[in-house]
Design a protein around this nucleic acid. Structure first.
Lengths: 144, 144
DNA sequence: CTTGCTCCTCTAGTCGCTAGAGGAACTAGG
DNA sequence: CCTAGTTCCTCTAGCGACTAGAGGAGCAAG
């Protein structure tokens, strides 16, 4: 209604926690808003939009630095969007790598828990596989 | 051959970097080995096995705390392996959650980059989707 | 006017390492 | 025996992206 929001309002609106908003300001991702007489942050609708953008990008797993670039791009609508496209493509490639690696990992973990005979540790498949890398299909997998 | 290894040997054998081995010692994951006269760490075959176990578990994405528990279990072979099983199952569930979330994410990113018309930022699908959460299928997805 | 909420700043902690400084001790060659 | 190069030692600080908590001030309702 007013177009003026406290940090708490902003947090509720955007789903970003209050300390995180302050953190974003500190690292220069969100501009420092004007303050009220009492020294409190007074956000406007633009800030809320920016915050929603950040939140959504974070949800999609973009790193802060990538978001910084995307925000700069957003502020200059006449530029070619090749840069934004490249960032998204890059990120997509990373996500695909992680899915591949996690899928291999899942297979291995399934083998582990399925092989577990629920007896003693001495004959536990879980412990065994962990102890003996040779037994396992997971050679040279990347970090998940 | 000797059964005595320097930290460098241990690093080469296990694939765990030297500072990381020292770190594992510091946090009590790997026991402090005896030292040579010159004050250098002297590892035995048991330590190398433990280190390989740790490395493999880390590769599989287990957290340090989980590994700590698994190692304790490994040291007591008469215990039931229910605990180890539970840890592995838990971890598997987590991995499955991450795969699901990343798969949703991939779909969204694909939509993004496929929709990009390679024109100006003003009409860029990437920027648009990020700015407007409503346009996107990714509601309430967990962190990847 | 007091209660209780929100806000402020600041520091320190999380996880799992990684990087670098500054120095001591081994190893190989001359 | 000396030297050069490598490996080792300890220690502190940094990464990313927050999160937690202390200690205090403002502000709105009863």
């Amino acid at each position: 209604m007013t177009g003026i929001f406290t940090i708490g309002d902003a947090a509720r609106e955007s789903g970003v926690k209050v300390p995180t908003i302050r953190y974003y300001e500190e690292i220069g991702l969100l501009p420092s808003p004007p303050r009220t007489e009492g020294g409190r942050r007074a956000y406007g609708a633009t800030d809320l939009r920016r915050l929603a953008f950040i939140r959504h990008a974070r949800e999609l797993g973009f790193e802060i630095d990538a978001i910084r670039t995307l925000l700069k791009l957003q502020d200059e609508p006449d530029q070619s969007c090749a840069a934004a496209d490249a960032i998204a493509r890059d990120h997509l490639a990373g996500v695909e790598r992680r899915i591949a690696s996690l899928t291999a990992l899942r297979a291995e973990l399934q083998r582990m828990v399925e092989g577990c005979s629920h007896g003693h540790v001495a004959s536990c498949r879980v412990i065994e596989i962990l102890a003996d890398h040779g037994e396992c299909a997971h050679h040279q997998g990347g970090r998940a």
